[in-house]
Design a protein around this nucleic acid. Structure first.
Lengths: 208, 208
DNA sequence: AGCAAAAGTTTCCAAAAGGAAACATTATTT
DNA sequence: AAATAATGTTTCCTTTTGGAAACTTTTGCT
């Protein structure tokens, strides 16, 4: 079924072999590095000591005579306290039956009364590795302060809308806005509070 | 030589600076790369063609036998449409009780020209059960995924914006709008195409 | 200006990366 | 189950990187 149907369904698709030949946007790493070093007021010798790379090597990198290895770049970024954005601003197959579960937006009605409203997604499948939820967190409801939430596994969450504060056991609270995400061990105490005037909406996925 | 060498590629090292001693957490670049490649449904051969790096080289990088040069990494990131900051972001905590990783919206600038832009989320943690990505799929671009993507594990995806068609091996194509989500076995052939005038944005999480 | 010290570049060589092809392993087909 | 295809790894060899030291240029001082 699959092969023939595939042809029928997508007759217009073609493989673009040309894509692999596309030009790489050249990052002038050396130039950038030199700017950073000099603006930090460092000489090559000083930079050498901080990074553990030889003076000569640094010189060659800055003058684009060599392309540093990943190892070298790690020494560079950690030694000079550069964060990467600053520097670059500019298993196989088991053929069983396939499973698929689509959840339409707002298809399942959440409970109306609680602080949290959890909508379990992908309800038709069982024995999944992950459990996806979409939740609504009511604005300024501080009942959530009650106690840490703690359970097995790991959790990923992304803020779909609103403004939240994410509290966790071993860290300072952080504010999360739309588009921000967190990944954490769920056996670390954690808690979410909406801090803005509006309710917040999040997507979260657990795996254990 | 080889066995010992493999151990020594990314040593945990200590560098003395003026202020204090600083511990560098080694990045499992190879592991991360392999996850990305397989998540994209690519073989080494395909990745080789997209990046211009030899199959053997890719294998060695993935198995941490070599430390790629910056040049090689540029080929990697541009060929696979990964953005560099995500790839370089160093894990800060290794093997502690509670782990947490926050990714701010649009932290790293993606490549501007490509059909797909894959932003790896939660880059600071290693050994995660899940791999979260945020991706942009350009409108009406039918070239890139011309064949089924198939890899181990399960996948959950949610449409953040735009209008997509989700093709999968044993089912009829379905249209997905903002807020819709799918959960599926990733070893079932699957493919995403943006069908509206605007680019689409999705969040997806894999687990194996 | 002339000298000395510091900063930066180049040379040479050992060590490591990158590629082609042989080899090994894993999937798929007959 | 054997044969074939594909995917992934290892070997061997060439090219390139990284470091020590020699060399050149710049800076600071008298």
């Amino acid at each position: 079924m699959s092969d023939q149907q595939q042809q029928d369904i997508y007759p217009s698709m073609t493989i673009s072999t040309d894509q692999s030949e596309q030009k790489i946007a050249p990052i002038k790493l050396g130039e950038r590095l030199k700017e950073i070093r000099t603006s930090l007021g460092l000489t090559l010798e000083e930079a050498s000591q901080k990074t553990g790379l030889a003076r000569s090597t640094l010189s060659k990198i800055e003058n684009e005579q060599i392309s540093p290895t990943f190892q070298a770049m790690q020494k560079l970024t950690s030694g000079l306290q550069i964060n990467i954005p600053q520097l670059f601003a500019a298993p196989k197959k088991v053929n069983t039956t396939g499973r698929r579960d689509i959840t339409r937006k707002d298809l399942g009605k959440p409970h109306p009364t609680s602080t949290y409203e959890h909508e379990l997604l992908a309800t038709q499948l069982t024995n999944k590795k992950m459990m996806p939820f979409k939740s609504l967190i009511r604005a300024r409801d501080f009942d959530a302060y009650a106690d840490w939430i703690r359970h097995d596994g790991e959790e990923f969450l992304l803020v779909l809308s609103g403004e939240l504060t994410f509290y966790s056991e071993y860290y300072e609270p952080v504010n999360l806005s739309e588009g921000d995400s967190v990944y954490y061990d769920a056996n670390m105490g954690h808690m979410l509070v909406s801090v803005s005037e509006e309710d917040a909406s999040i997507l979260w996925v657990t795996a254990s």
